[in-house]
Design a protein around this nucleic acid. Structure first.
Lengths: 331, 331
DNA sequence: GAGATTGGCGACATAATTTGTCGCATTCAG
DNA sequence: CTGAATGCGACAAATTATGTCGCCAATCTC
């Protein structure tokens, strides 16, 4: 293949989306790195030719010209999406829309758009597709708290590049917002919230910052000071997130009613789940699960439909929660 | 821009991924449709040139040659993914992996791969990125029941193209699997399961088929007979999925404890939620929510942390559930 | 199985495109 | 103001792309 066409493609991939730009000189260097030795004159000509067929933007107000790719232009994927892939993108969108902050989702939008167009165009000229599939999310469907777009962007970039960042943040118990310098160590997405784990300059200890409480962010191009022994998984399992009540796995045995809990047979709670049929209306399961808060909630809500055979301490705990709840609901 | 380069690009997008193939004749027709009038000879030459730079496969054992794109080749996206976009793909993968059937996910794999490579390459030569971000899913993390790959593929294609499909299916109360012809009307993803809504040929009424109970599927190229008045949303809201207990929205008023339910302030349960501070340890919320099973579970589990001020019937209902659960857990 | 049809491919001449080079204009930093 | 960097028009040479023709092998049709 003529290396011209390949060079065109490579160049197109080098031009960044709008807010960022690239100059011919930079392109020349990077192309050279890819083994294309061409004059700057050629690159100038190429960009102009490509502009005819691709949404390239030029800022000619400053010299050297700044080239960028249209911010919202949909992408050309090679090879084109096929029907099942496009469909999967639609599903992904349905699942993710309520989960991810809108700003994060916006980065996927061009892909979703491409998928959507594929579905509408190919084979389905009537565009009936959207009427045929639904994703129903569990839970109460509460809104996610809004995260400032710049904050999320800043934090993720800081994390990736090992830089500090400056945040305007107000913890729940702070009387008013403060500007803090954070050394980011990790980011945790846990359903309604996004947590930034890190240290605050001038203060002790590892902190959890809930991202929606930050109102402004700015990258500070200084290297992060990372505690030697920090590891995100260890941190999570140390119980810091309030997820695990203890590190001991729970060996759970339940006697369940049909049909209420029938789904447990087909959607086991863990890899080692064993199921024993007792009679037409009852079965038992045995499975190892994490000792979490979510487990307690689930057991509390499902207590009507099952007996907690083991462990006994957990049964007692649920009994306590139910008794307390009942006392309260009776006013 | 020379139309040769554009033609190359267009051609690349026309070549389908491996199991499917395309011939030069077909390409000629489709290119013609896009306004490229070229000889077949040129197309033959083009494909060979492109093979040098792209993972194109040829089956030369049969005449005309069958061209296809490597099944697993990662994609070239224009423009290339930037850091935040790549990051969002990683997040999407973390969220979706436990939610979607593996077969569906496999269609996104080339995209996830591309994102992963971007993250590892750019700015993050140490490849530390995976250590820095975690997604923690709520709930008990039960496995999704496995859905047969062909079944999912067949069903989605049938839905999109308005064809019937033949499934080997065993409903819970059927003594053994049967081969049925289904007229698919809609597909519903609801957390652990995927439901195909449709009619079964030779039987009355609209059925819900849980996809993981089908073991084989095959497209039947005959048009679907669609009941005149069927609409997926209406179907869901009619209560057929057991999601809504009634169609009446519930105007819920809760008096909540801090800090247990503090998150409700920042992640409201609905658009119209209003929050009233009572004292340092208490606040009230009022919000309209759907009358769902999930609502009851949630209230049951949270009864320890809040008073249900209204509606009274719901308070009584939760009281009943708690009492019943307590009775049972006490053995 | 004979004849017709189709698709693949080498070769070649011609048309089209690409590319480096040069010269000049413009911009910008110091 | 000066020098360096960048953009761009023009032009000739080099390279590439394209249609056409002829031949052959595989397939299809009757």
């Amino acid at each position: 293949m003529s290396n011209t066409a390949v060079r065109y493609l490579t160049m197109l991939r080098m031009v960044p989306r709008f807010p960022k730009t690239i100059t011919t000189t930079e392109l020349a260097e990077r192309l050279d790195g890819h083994g294309f030795e061409v004059t700057m004159r050629s690159i100038q000509r190429d960009l102009e030719k490509l502009s005819a067929d691709f949404p390239l933007l030029v800022d000619e107000s400053t010299r050297p010209f700044q080239w960028s790719f249209d911010r919202d232009a949909t992408m050309d994927i090679i090879p084109a999406l096929d029907l099942p892939a496009a469909l999967t993108f639609e599903l992904a969108r349905a699942y993710l829309s309520p989960m991810l902050p809108p700003r994060a989702l916006s980065h996927l939008k061009p892909h979703f758009d491409e998928a959507h167009r594929t579905l509408l165009r190919e084979k389905n000229p009537l565009g009936k597709w959207p009427d045929r599939v639904r994703v129903i999310n569990r839970g109460l469907g509460g809104r996610r708290p809004a995260i400032d777009a710049d904050v999320l962007e800043t934090v993720t970039e800081a994390l990736l590049r090992d830089f500090r960042c400056k945040l305007t943040y107000q913890a729940r118990n702070w009387p008013e917002p403060e500007v803090i310098i954070v050394h980011p160590l990790g980011l945790i997405f846990r359903d309604p919230n996004v947590y930034l784990i890190g240290t605050i300059e001038g203060r002790e200890g590892i902190r959890q910052l809930v991202l929606h409480r930050a109102t402004a962010g700015e990258l500070v191009e200084q290297p992060v000071e990372r505690p030697e022994d920090f590891e995100l998984d260890l941190y999570i399992h140390s119980g810091a997130m309030g997820i695990l009540k203890s590190n001991k796995p729970v060996y759970l045995r339940l006697r369940c009613d049909r049909p209420a809990l029938n789904h447990l047979v087909e959607s086991p709670l863990g890899f080692d789940q064993t199921t024993t049929e007792i009679d037409d209306n009852t079965f038992e399961i045995a499975v190892t699960v994490g000792d979490t808060q979510d487990l307690r909630w689930w057991l509390t809500a499902q207590a009507v439909h099952c007996d907690i055979l083991a462990p006994d301490w957990l049964r007692k705990e649920i009994e306590g929660i139910l008794a307390q709840g009942l006392g309260r609901v009776r006013q």
